[in-house]
Design a binder for these strands. Sequence first.
DNA 1: CTTTTAGGAATGAATATTCATTCCGCATAT
DNA 2: ATATGCGGAATGAATATTCATTCCTAAAAG
Lengths: 189, 189
Amino acid sequence: MITNKRDDVLEAALLLFAERGFDGTTIPMIADKAKVGAGTIYRYFENKEALFNTLFQYWVTRLSEIVKDNFPSDLTNIRLHHRHIFFQIIQFVNHNEHALHFIDSHCSTHYLDEKSQKLFADFLEFLRSILEKGKEQGDICSLPADALIAIVYGAIVQLFKLMRMNILEETPELLVNIEECCWNAIKAH
Amino acid sequence: MITNKRDDVLEAALLLFAERGFDGTTIPMIADKAKVGAGTIYRYFENKEALFNTLFQYWVTRLSEIVKDNFPSDLTNIRLHHRHIFFQIIQFVNHNEHALHFIDSHCSTHYLDEKSQKLFADFLEFLRSILEKGKEQGDICSLPADALIAIVYGAIVQLFKLMRMNILEETPELLVNIEECCWNAIKAH
DNA sequence: CTTTTAGGAATGAATATTCATTCCGCATAT
DNA sequence: ATATGCGGAATGAATATTCATTCCTAAAAG
């Protein structure tokens, strides 16, 4: 199989950044895991920060795409929207178990560049717009959209942390129940 | 005002560790912020890791105490338990706005020593025991206790991240509503 | 078909920088 | 005068980055 060195580097970096954070990950560590010389990394990326931002932008774009993909055509059924978003994020995590934690643990750090920040802000803005519509319709409880996002998104992130640590086993049934819990948290009562 | 250098160091370290993480925080940074010579830190702590673990243990102990303090005497009213735990955590955050994020962002890192890990595990075990009781009584939805903790605790952590970043303003009314949301997420329906 | 050769890719040792930790001289208190 | 606490320059280890060299591939020449 022909593997592309640049991709090998990105894959190794994702694992390490997710597990040890930006500052806890060294270039030699990445080179080792990618089975590549340390110098090779600098053929593809200007420096450690540029590598980091490339990776961040890639995964935020993916997440954004997967959530927006096949978005329910019925624009008034918020219950459906919530289910869609929830299970698309699940699919995202199942596609790469480290990416969500990588994004979450670095989304407000000081080495994010302009473009990374903008991509992430845009994604949040999308979620916000969905929730605002739900609030207008009276289907969702009338708290600030950011608070609602924090509740659902915070729960998801924390749950997958447990699953990555093998403390909690992911089963389809559990996921359905958890989605229900999240919905109960934010629906209008 | 007589200030204790050791406490100055601990306070500065808390801020920096919370904002930049363990690896992103250097000893000179801590010394600067604490207005102390770098060498002085080593009069009080064996090394950076020891300083970190002292701090972690201090704050987990505080959190645990504040949550267990004045725990409702009615041992069957889970609704009350939830409210108590929620608002005691709020009080903890208001006492020091960085401590919860400091704990959360470091609670599964590899430089935690045995004692730190045990203290944190004990705290989780306490929460777990409350939830298990609620499940037995049929007041709380029958998912794994760890999942329920993740939902509520994840939401709280994320919410305070927004408040620290001044994206969300903390008002008593908002907090009451959010507590309600969290309860709705985990109560039996 | 084999050999030569040019140019890009890859390497890892060398360099420059940053960081944790140590150490020594100064100041303050006893 | 001695002891104690402190600061911050000095040290050495770890780290990011560079660079001279080697390695591959694929096309040109024989």
